[in-house]
Amino acid sequence: MEKYDIIIIGAGPGGLTAGIYAGRQGTRNLIIDRDLAGGLGREVPEMENYPGFDNVSGLELIEKMKAQAIRNCDLHEMEEVTEIIKTDDDEYHFTVKTSKDEYKTKTVILATGSSHRHLNAKGEEEFKGKGVSYCATCDGFFFQGRDIVMVGGGNSALQEALYLNNLGANVTLIHRRDEFRAQKHLQDQIKEAGISTILNATVEEIKGEMLVESVVLKDTQTGELSEHPTSGVFISVGYIPHTELAKQLGVELDESGHIIIDTDQKTNVDYVYAIGDVCVGLKQWVVACGEGAVAATSAYHDLS
């Protein structure tokens, strides 16, 4: 059974940064991810607020970070962590079981991220992959020249609406509140691009025969229903944190289900740290990277 000083679970921006910092501090560490490195970061069409880049796609940045990480640590992609067991060992405090192997480690950094939140609208599951999508960069190409709706009001929703518009789709933004939550510069870009918006509306049903043909909207102020024709429904309404492993370890969560951490990224469980979207705090790429650096350094000091 291989032994490590630090095992990082999740290879998103935070996990990769933690691996870089941990390796440069001289520790033996491993990053494990059940998918490809990058997680939801791979889906970001473009960022204009990441330091050092005027404009960069999530996939491009992930590939750069991955190349840097594997120079400093081991990286296992497509390997799911199924269980973390506390041990009685005074040095190696945990056994990490995966779909492929078992490992011993002195510390664990949880960078398990989150997944797309669903609308739970009628027809959503039925038309998934048939016009319903949660990833503009994955599926946007297929909707060039077609009418589509983007549901959501945060940064991600507006970024993806702009991306889809640039691809040549005819985009309408739908948001349940009377104003968007996204940063002002994104709202300004939506106006400049001439993207249509429908505020104070929720998607109650997604309709069609073989493929999506329309959505039923409910006015949140009057309760009135209306039908809006569309070929595609792109959904960006938040994320659900992946805390299954945290719960196994007895890690404390807040009311929203996110991991509670201190300023050193420590959880309430000794030698367990957490970073990124699974934690309480601002959901931003640069924040996850900073937290990864802090967690790796905290783990290093706790092992010294």
Rank of each mutant, 00 (worst) to 15 (best):
232 G>I: 05
97 K>T: 13
96 V>R: 03
107 T>M: 11
70 I>E: 14
230 T>V: 13
43 E>V: 14
264 D>M: 11
192 E>S: 10
37 A>S: 14
128 K>S: 11
193 A>T: 04
114 S>F: 01
133 S>E: 07
168 G>C: 12
176 R>W: 05
247 K>M: 13
153 G>E: 00
163 Y>K: 01
122 K>C: 08
290 G>V: 05
24 R>M: 11
107 T>H: 10
110 L>C: 07
81 V>R: 00
129 G>S: 06
200 N>A: 05
208 G>H: 06
176 R>Q: 09
242 H>I: 12
194 G>L: 12
138 C>L: 07
183 Q>F: 08
15 G>T: 04
4 Y>F: 15
266 K>D: 00
125 E>T: 11
62 I>A: 06
91 E>V: 13
281 G>Q: 06
149 V>I: 14
165 N>P: 00
144 Q>I: 11
72 N>K: 06
169 A>K: 08
225 L>C: 00
71 R>M: 11
197 T>E: 15
15 G>W: 07
73 C>S: 12
147 D>P: 06
268 N>A: 04
128 K>P: 00
291 E>Y: 05
242 H>Q: 13
36 L>S: 10
135 C>H: 03
98 T>C: 04
157 A>H: 05
281 G>M: 11
160 E>C: 09
139 D>A: 09
33 D>N: 12
303 L>M: 08
181 R>L: 10
187 Q>T: 09
83 E>L: 11
249 L>Y: 01
24 R>N: 10
236 S>A: 13
42 R>V: 03
208 G>R: 08
278 V>R: 03
256 S>C: 00
232 G>C: 06
11 A>V: 03
288 A>C: 07
253 L>N: 04
303 L>C: 05
16 L>I: 10
197 T>D: 03
206 I>Q: 05
185 H>Q: 08
70 I>P: 00
90 D>L: 12
111 A>W: 02
277 D>F: 10
57 S>P: 02
242 H>G: 00
286 V>H: 03
146 R>T: 11
82 T>G: 01
111 A>L: 06
131 G>Q: 02
26 G>D: 03
157 A>Y: 02
121 A>C: 04
290 G>F: 07
95 T>K: 13
214 S>N: 10
121 A>V: 08
171 V>G: 09
77 E>P: 07
302 D>E: 14
296 A>H: 03
61 L>I: 11
105 T>I: 10
221 Q>E: 13
93 H>G: 04
162 L>N: 06
55 N>R: 15
88 D>I: 11
77 E>V: 13
102 E>P: 00
32 I>V: 13
76 H>Q: 11
62 I>V: 12
148 I>G: 05
218 K>F: 01
279 C>G: 06
276 G>C: 02
222 T>D: 03
18 A>T: 10
179 E>T: 12
84 I>S: 05
131 G>C: 06
190 I>V: 14
113 G>W: 04
146 R>G: 02
231 S>Y: 13
39 G>N: 11
36 L>M: 09
206 I>M: 06
89 D>G: 08
63 E>V: 06
76 H>P: 00
141 F>W: 15
177 R>M: 15
206 I>G: 01
47 M>V: 07
113 G>P: 01
108 V>K: 04
23 G>N: 10
4 Y>R: 07
74 D>G: 01
254 D>H: 02
130 K>H: 11
287 V>K: 06
114 S>P: 01
239 Y>D: 02
151 V>C: 04
121 A>H: 08
263 T>Q: 14
284 Q>T: 09
12 G>H: 00
25 Q>L: 15
